[in-house]
Amino acid sequence: MNAHQQPTGSAYFLDTSKKTVETHTLAVVADNEPGVLARIIGLFAGRGYNIDSLTVSETIHDKHVSRFTIVTTGTPSVLTQIRHQLERMVPVHSVADLTVQGNSIARELAMVKVAGGGEKRMEALRLADAFRARVIDASTDSFIFEITGKPDKVDQFISLMVPIGLVEVSRTGVAGISRGPEGMKV
């Protein structure tokens, strides 16, 4: 009768293993029916999975099919579990782990507002040119840049804008697609 001596005093066995965490990009094709986004978010919240980024839009209008790109972090077994949990949802057609498939592209769009004058204004334009960001709005003392690219390129651009006079940023989150002629099962 030594159960009381165990450290947790709990019914559950505590997992203390520290496995390496990876970041993966998942593509999900699902029916665009009411509540489908809530279902997917609820799955992540309810089972304690992470969402680093989530984008969604209807991609095939006449079939009411939406495509989600979800960036998530977890141990390899958790990432597999996330894929299976998504796959068994009734409105979900197919799920692809773009990171496992390897050959894929991820892009993000950001609008970056920078304010300031004089030399800082010139510096902002020079950096924007180097990053191929476009000016989509300008006033006498501010710019809004549109930048598209891999998330780390966007990160880099934003961090460079901080000392110049970064005001605010609006980012879309990541959209992903695999290279080559094949598409996802719809």
Partner: peptide, 16 residues
């Protein structure tokens, strides 16, 4: 099987 124990660490009734 007390919490956090394995299958071969069972408590049997005769311990009581």
């Amino acid at each position: 099987i007390p919490s956090g124990k394995a299958h071969n660490e069972m408590l049997l009734g005769e311990d009581v």
